[in-house]
């Protein structure tokens, strides 16, 4: 379980995220949704200790994020930012291998190699493992990054908009990979999603943010309602029944 207690980040005197008091359940997929600038990425990066807190505490599976040594946290939680522009030319396998750094400090053991192979296969990258990242399409590269954080073998995986720049097919594929990571590997996946329909279809738990605060949370069924979504996104939304569950229409 990830617990945020009175967490705050001040950007300017009038722009602040928080105070956030929220519990994200262990297991399954938790989706963070909300309009632009709501603070979803800030929350995620604070939980993943990429961004310092100005107040409050974050605990992940019992570890206090600000007090636990970074090395130790790297075996508990992995986090992937939205924008990843690597100048470095690595092969897929080399990149995924770096995910094993917390365990092996770079010198991969046979066990590490197995984890790397598993992560690569899990995301269907076996054919591409010898390719350099700059020779991949955007969707393949995104999968390689996710393979890296999965190879890190942490119970908690945080992803900031992993569907960014992916077309329909790749976005759906990515969510299916994450679903399987939660179901078959038992990972707790927290993911920032731009499109609330992806959250409705694939998440177990939805946390909605607006103006730096958590305004709603619950099961997809509880969030996928006209009045709730319209209030969160400040725009008229109607939820209709689709073939796989509720679909938000906002065009």
């Amino acid at each position: 379980m990830i617990t945020l207690a009175n967490v705050r980040k001040d950007y300017a005197s009038d722009v602040r995220i928080g105070p956030l008091d929220v519990e994200l359940p262990a297991g399954g997929i938790t989706a963070l949704v909300g309009p632009n600038g709501a603070g979803k990425s800030t929350l995620l990066t604070m939980v993943g200790r990429l961004l310092g807190l100005d107040a409050g505490t974050v605990t992940i599976g019992g570890y206090d994020v600000t007090r636990t040594p970074s090395k130790q946290l790297a075996k508990v939680v992995s986090v992937l930012r939205q924008e990843n522009h690597f100048v470095t030319r690595l092969t897929v396998r080399q990149l995924v291998g770096l995910g094993r750094f917390p365990h092996s400090k770079g010198r991969l053991t046979a066990d590490d190699e197995r984890h790397v192979s598993d992560a690569i296969d899990f995301l269907g990258l076996h054919e591409l493992e010898g390719r350099h990242l700059d020779e991949l399409s955007g969707g393949q590269r995104q999968r390689a990054y996710v393979a890296m954080v999965l190879a890190q073998d942490t119970p908690y995986v945080l992803l900031d908009e992993p569907l960014n720049n992916l077309d329909m097919r790749h976005a759906v594929g990515m969510m299916q990979h994450l679903r399987r990571a939660a179901d078959t590997l038992g990972r707790t996946v927290v993911v920032v999603l731009h499109d609330v329909n992806f959250a409705a279809r694939y998440a177990d738990h939805v946390v909605a943010m607006k103006d730096g605060l958590v305004v709603e949370q619950g099961s997809p069924a509880e969030i996928m309602r006209d009045d709730v979504l319209s209030r969160i996104f400040d725009t008229p939304v109607s939820v209709v029944d689709g073939p796989h569950g509720p679909v938000a229409c906002y065009f």
């Binding site: 990429l50 946290l73 790297a74 075996k75 990843n84 690597f86 770096l98 750094f101 917390p102 890190q152």
Partner: peptide
């Protein structure tokens, strides 16, 4: 070489 965030992520 992959940046501060990736480095922090792996501890």
């Amino acid at each position: 070489g992959l940046g501060r965030d990736v480095a922090t992520n792996v501890g």
